[in-house]
Write a protein that binds this DNA or RNA. Sequence first.
DNA 1: TTGCGTGCAAAGGTTTTGCATGGCA
DNA 2: TGCCATGCAAAACCTTTGCACGCAA
Lengths: 130, 130
Amino acid sequence: MVKYMTQQRRRLLEFLKSNPDKLFSPKEIAVQLDGEEVSLSAIYRNLAFLEESGVIGRVMRAGSKEVFYRALDSGVCHGRVHLTCTRCGKTNHMDAEVAKQLAEALRKSSGFEIDTARTTIYGLCKSCHS
Amino acid sequence: MVKYMTQQRRRLLEFLKSNPDKLFSPKEIAVQLDGEEVSLSAIYRNLAFLEESGVIGRVMRAGSKEVFYRALDSGVCHGRVHLTCTRCGKTNHMDAEVAKQLAEALRKSSGFEIDTARTTIYGLCKSCHS
DNA sequence: TTGCGTGCAAAGGTTTTGCATGGCA
DNA sequence: TGCCATGCAAAACCTTTGCACGCAA
């Protein structure tokens, strides 16, 4: 099935990509895109489509049942493992060296080949646990 | 506010603790507890309460919007990081030593405190990538 | 021109809530 | 006994879907 790049899809994707490590609920996205003629159902349909394509990712934060989305492979994030804080929701990148060591350790101990792009590590960031 | 340990709360908690490695949606829990006189609203209220208390954890799986719960500090999975294969779907535990090193490395490099119970690492397991 | 995507409104499903009753401490 | 928790049913919410029209390729 061939897919089109419609105005709505482009606007949604551009918005998420221009806010690389931030999380947005569908509702928040609707607010941000208000005035750009993107209906809520188009947002839902495109979020589902883009997630399935691996372009964006979906996350839940501790303590809330809201669902959040964020752009995945925007330049900066390429090949980086994400660290997401379950309290404030902020996402950072794992130190490249640590990621390399982790990949190596998993390969050796379990024969497991980590997919860095799809993996998010949860926990508390520096400012939230101190 | 003092909390009571009611029959319903005890049954729910016992059920989750007796299935350490498994995830259950509220609906599935209701089915499992059917015949034990726990109403769906009691299940929801207790899941929220137990999650807030840190006794159980809430998770979403990739590709589905269903919400799942599992007991946290129960024996088998205590402090174990999960490794899930994106091809065959099987989940294993990360080697304890590797997990320990990872936690330490994250703490040092980013001041990030990993939540092992909530983290799942994705990639290809031994038999799927070879 | 073809058929995917959109907008709207309605439907569907899950989770929450109000209220009277029941049960733990 | 005092108050939290439960059950039930209704309400609230979020997300999905059907349909006719619009638009990308």
